[in-house]
Amino acid sequence: MYSTAEKKNNSLIFHSSTMNAKIFEKYKSTEGKRTFYFKAENLFSPYQEFSIKVDDEKLWNLIEVNNTYFINVSWKSPNSENVINYQTTNLLQIEKLDP
């Protein structure tokens, strides 16, 4: 997993990370604007489970549960620790890995 802490803004630090992850659940937000999510787990140490927010329903429909993907995600946190466990991240890039 490769990560960076990018900049500070009002005591929040913006992070991004690339990793191989397995998608194990898909769900939609039912409140307000329709938003689409995946639940994923990092395949390598540190093993972390997190959610990925996707704004595009067409992309969300293409992603398959129980498949492995190379992903790039971003998130905000109040500190510089690179922990995404149980956080909601934003999808920046995704590519399916061969089995």
Rank of each mutant, 00 (worst) to 15 (best):
P46E: 10
V83M: 05
S16V: 01
L12T: 02
N85T: 10
Y37F: 15
E41I: 09
I71E: 01
N72W: 12
A21L: 03
L62P: 01
V73Q: 01
I13F: 15
N67R: 14
N85L: 07
N9M: 14
K58E: 15
N67V: 05
K58R: 15
L43G: 02
Q87T: 04
E25V: 01
F70C: 07
V73K: 00
S11C: 14
N85D: 13
N79M: 06
N72E: 12
K39F: 02
A21W: 00
F38N: 00
N42C: 13
N9R: 13
F70E: 14
F50M: 04
K33Y: 11
E64D: 12
V73A: 01
Q87Y: 03
N42E: 11
N79R: 05
N10E: 15
E49F: 14
H15W: 01
N20A: 15
E81Y: 13
N67I: 09
L92H: 07
Y47P: 07
K22D: 09
L91I: 03
E64K: 14
N67D: 14
N82C: 10
E25F: 08
K39E: 07
V83Q: 03
Q48F: 04
K33R: 12
P46I: 06
K76H: 06
T88E: 02
K22R: 15
F44Q: 11
F38A: 00
N72H: 15
I23G: 00
S80H: 09
N90V: 06
K39T: 02
S16H: 13
E57Y: 15
I84E: 00
N20H: 15
F24D: 12
S74R: 03
Y47N: 10
N79L: 05
E64G: 08
S45R: 11
Y47D: 08
K33Q: 14
S74Y: 05
N79W: 11
L62T: 12
K58I: 12
E25L: 10
S29D: 10
Y47C: 05
S74V: 06
V83T: 07
K39I: 02
N67F: 14
S51H: 04
N82V: 09
F70A: 11
N90L: 08
F14L: 14
F44H: 13
Q48R: 07
E57G: 06
K53C: 04
G32E: 05
Q87R: 06
L92P: 04
I13S: 02
V54W: 04
L91Y: 01
G32L: 12
N10A: 15
S45H: 11
N90S: 12
S80T: 11
T89W: 00
N82Q: 13
Y86L: 11
P46M: 07
V73Y: 03
N10V: 04
P46Y: 09
G32C: 03
E49D: 08
L62A: 11
T30P: 02
T89D: 00
T88W: 00
G32I: 04
S74N: 08
S51R: 04
A40N: 00
W75K: 00
N10Q: 13
N67H: 14
E25R: 05
L43C: 04
V73F: 02
T18K: 13
T35E: 08
K76M: 12
R34M: 05
T88Y: 02
N79Q: 05
H15D: 06
P46D: 09
F38Y: 13
N82H: 07
T18W: 07
T68K: 05
